[in-house]
Computed example of a mutant assay.
Amino acid sequence: MARTIAKDHDQKRAHILKVAAKVFAAEGFDRASMTVLAKACGISKANIYHYYSGKDALLFDVLDSYLRALRDRVCGLELAELAPETQLRALLREILLAYQGADDEHRVQSSGIARLPEAEQQVLRGYQRDMVAVMKRVVAANAPELFAEDAARLHETTMSIFGMLNWYYMWQSAADQAARLRYADVVADLVLNGITGTAGNTGTAGGGKP
């Protein structure tokens, strides 16, 4: 007879994933044994093995759950009816809001993907490529004459935007929603107008220091 799934299975799994992301981010993947992870989760070692066969499986699920949800949120934005600049601002805001509360997963992503088997890496990188494709379309729509025949410039601009977004947590980890929305507009102004375009944006991103 197949083992029945406990009613709180999904809730416990979500708890394990959140705690594991925190442990992986703080301790590093190599030092985070299943024993350490189980203790941090407040469950027995046997219990954590009920959910995951080992650290690699747990790492993949942390990243798969995070990146899949992020991809679905970003790629699910209804942008087609918006003006190009409005599309860009809406996309930047959505990404920064989606990052809120996920600093640990974000840290783990930067070093964790390469530790996984190639097939699993491809799944995760597929989510990333989907989000990059959305950003490229929006960026290109804002300057079609510039990017129409310069794919390299479009890629470089797109990845530079992600660079500005992805490292925000390093110097503004406590940023609330309002700060994130302000910073999204700073990035949009930089992209659309260059550094002089930030002159009219007098708000600070949550009071952070440079």
Rank of each mutant, 00 (worst) to 15 (best):
M1S: 04
A2T: 08
T4L: 13
A6V: 09
K7Y: 08
D10N: 06
R13A: 12
R13N: 07
A14T: 10
K18A: 12
K18D: 15
K18Y: 03
K18G: 04
A20C: 04
A21K: 00
F24L: 05
E27A: 07
E27W: 10
G28F: 11
R31K: 14
A32M: 06
A32Y: 10
S33V: 08
M34C: 07
M34N: 04
T35S: 07
V36H: 09
K39R: 13
A40C: 06
A40E: 11
A40I: 06
G42F: 04
K45T: 15
A46W: 11
H50G: 00
H50Y: 13
H50Q: 03
Y51A: 02
Y52P: 07
K55R: 15
D56A: 09
A57D: 14
F60A: 03
V62H: 01
L63T: 08
L63S: 02
S65V: 05
S65P: 00
S65E: 14
A69L: 02
L70A: 11
R71Q: 14
R73I: 10
V74P: 00
G76E: 12
G76S: 05
L77I: 09
A80V: 08
A80P: 00
E81M: 05
E81P: 00
A83E: 12
T86K: 13
R89A: 09
A90C: 13
L91K: 00
L92G: 05
R93G: 12
I95M: 08
I95A: 02
L96F: 06
L97R: 00
A102L: 08
D103Y: 01
D104H: 10
D104S: 14
H106C: 01
R107I: 15
V108P: 07
V108A: 04
Q109C: 09
S110H: 11
G112S: 06
I113L: 02
A114K: 08
A114S: 08
R115H: 07
P117I: 13
P117A: 11
E120I: 02
E120D: 13
Q121R: 08
Q121Y: 07
Q122M: 13
V123E: 10
V123N: 01
V123H: 03
R125K: 14
V132Q: 07
V134Q: 04
V134R: 08
K136W: 09
V138F: 05
V139Y: 04
A141C: 02
N142F: 05
A143W: 08
A143L: 04
E145T: 09
L146D: 07
L146M: 07
F147S: 00
D150N: 11
D150H: 06
A152I: 13
A152W: 13
R153M: 15
L154F: 06
T157I: 07
T157K: 00
T158I: 04
S160E: 02
I161Q: 01
M164H: 11
N166H: 10
W167C: 11
Y169M: 10
Q172N: 15
D176T: 04
Q177I: 14
Q177R: 15
Q177W: 01
A179S: 12
R180T: 09
R182N: 14
R182V: 14
R182T: 15
Y183K: 03
N193C: 12
T196S: 11
G197F: 02
G197I: 09
A199T: 09
G200M: 09
N201W: 06
T204N: 05
T204F: 04
A205W: 02
A205M: 09
G206V: 07
G207L: 03
